[in-house]
Amino acid sequence: MSITIKIFGQLAEIVGSNEWHVQDASDTNFIKERLISDFPKLKNFPFVIVVNKKFVNQNQKIQTGDVVALLPPFAGG
């Protein structure tokens, strides 16, 4: 399954886009591994992954229609 992942803040700047397409995105671990393999600069960059606007704390399977986003540390206020 190919999915489009939303990317924000400094992560989007490093990736060079607010969106990133991943082929065969079966689960969130796969997405993290692909991200670091495609963008080695992100190896030590802190980020969280959210699926359908919920934080993912352990590996989660990706279903058709899921909205996945990668978020750098928050800096509101």
Binding site: F8, Q10, V50, L71, F74, A75, G76, G77
Partner: peptide, 9 residues
């Protein structure tokens, strides 16, 4: 807000 809202500056 500081801890949980996805906002960047």
């Amino acid at each position: 807000i500081k801890a949980n809202v996805p906002i960047w500056g």
